[in-house]
Nucleic acid binder design. Structure first.
Lengths: 257, 257
DNA sequence: CCTCCAAAAAATGTGCACATTATGCATCGT
DNA sequence: ACGATGCATAATGTGCACATTTTTTGGAGG
């Protein structure tokens, strides 16, 4: 498992024409994860141009490797690819964001329609436990944990069906709305009210599909209603090198695709 | 709009070292569509190995171009990519197929939950018109049209919401089940019963979500219940050249991605 | 001073050569 | 005779050089 570190000092070391840096199975993944993470954490503002050559220097890898990763992110709709003009961080319309939220809302309604048929004590207990966690985080004022747990609730719901297809769909949706949130959502308000999550679970306990869907819908409309254009995020990121500065050679993760 | 034809006789013509065949914006798309179409039409049986070099010869393009297309299809989960071992047409498990169908079912339940809130005369009229088409095709015994219209019904339902995200999700799902169907579904039976479609529309007319979801669910379970392993499709395709034989240089289609 | 245009500079796209990895096959050993 | 092993062959992965396209720049004309 040899893996070259990619400190910024690698670029110029081409002393030997042979032994070019080839055969790196996991380096693609490292670069991919680094850029994806920067996107999800909102370090890359909307509209930022991601040129191939600078990124290649920053990561200390060849341009084609960056190129491949960029195109992959484009295929996943996380970057906007324009032929002959490179990759940019998408600048979603308010309507785009609404569409993603609506899609999530619709998907969750479908999930609920299945869940009311499959509800059992085990699942209920798990959801209750999650609600308790959420309440605890809210009570002690842990904002970061609240945001994280709030999103995790919806993930729990789909995962309960045990269908990888559906879980993946929601994952894509969430990752995209995460990016969008950094542009449109007032930072402090992005927490779902725990009461609403509790109401959904209560409706599921009663196997009341109509109520569950209604509550879920209302819940999403609340979140959607809070969407505002964040003017601060209008300016693209300038210093790309700073964004990817403190990054380790490789994260233990590995996905077999 | 110059576009080289890709007859099989191009491979060897490297007389001039300069003027290498570069800058072809739409050729990727042509190859992509050709392979995708072959997949959807079931010409490529499950388990078939898609090697880069032979495909490059067949299409008369460079290997890297084939390579890019193959990886794109892999990212879309339409091909199974194994590192250092190339691309194969996936051989889905019966459980895989069931998962896709279940995902479709869940998604449609969500769509219905939105539709009951948005139902109006215009939409109802459109759905009724579609049902009429389906019945007409069934009465005159047009099997091809029946299959096509039967699938189109579900597409109509999502499209009615006007959310591109949701439409795209269903599109992906359908295209994947199309491939799977060729392996698992007895050819003649893949038609949804019109009565069931009609029952869904009737429930929508009454804005009865519970009934609509129940009917839709039942409808999908019928289809899922008919899934059988088709042993004939077990053998991989041998002659790749034959599959892509009668193909024109370019199809009028063009997608801006 | 602004606009328009052409040439230079930079960035993206692509074929090619070669490294690396997998596979088929003959040979050897038990 | 059968399985393991090493070599030859084929297939995939990658850096590089260069073509093409886009963007920037600098200057001429209105």
């Amino acid at each position: 498992m040899t893996c070259r570190a990619f400190g910024p000092s690698y670029v110029g070391m081409a002393m030997r024409p042979q032994r070019i840096g080839k055969a790196n199975p996991a380096e693609d993944e490292a670069v991919y994860q680094a850029i994806l993470r920067a996107l999800l954490e909102g370090k890359l503002k909307a509209g930022t141009k991601l040129a191939e050559t600078p990124l290649a220097s920053i990561f200390g890898v060849s341009r084609e490797r960056i190129r491949k990763v960029l195109h992959r992110l484009g295929a996943e709709r996380r970057l906007e690819m324009i032929p002959n003009r490179g990759a940019r961080v998408p600048r979603p319309t308010l309507e785009d964001v609404r569409r993603v939220y609506e899609a999530h809302r619709v998907l969750e309604a479908g999930v609920l329609s299945q869940l009311v048929l499959r509800m059992d004590e085990v699942l209920l207990a798990r959801l209750d436990a999650h609600l308790a966690e959420e309440r605890a985080a809210a009570q002690r004022g842990d904002r970061a944990a609240s945001v994280r747990l709030s999103g995790a609730f919806h993930v729990h719901l789909v995962d309960a069906l045990g269908n990888p297809e559906l879980s993946r769909m929601l994952g894509d949706l969430l990752s995209r709305s995460s990016v969008m949130v950094s542009v449109y959502e007032p930072a402090a308000q992005s927490i779902c009210a725990v009461d609403e999550h509790g109401a959904i679970v209560a409706a599921l306990r009663d196997r009341d599909l109509l109520r569950a869907v209604a509550v879920s819908r209302e819940h999403f409309l609340h979140v959607e209603g809070r969407l505002r254009l964040d003017e601060d995020g209008a300016a693209p990121t300038q210093d790309l090198a700073a964004v990817f500065a403190g990054r380790r050679p490789l994260r233990g993760k590995l996905r077999s695709a």
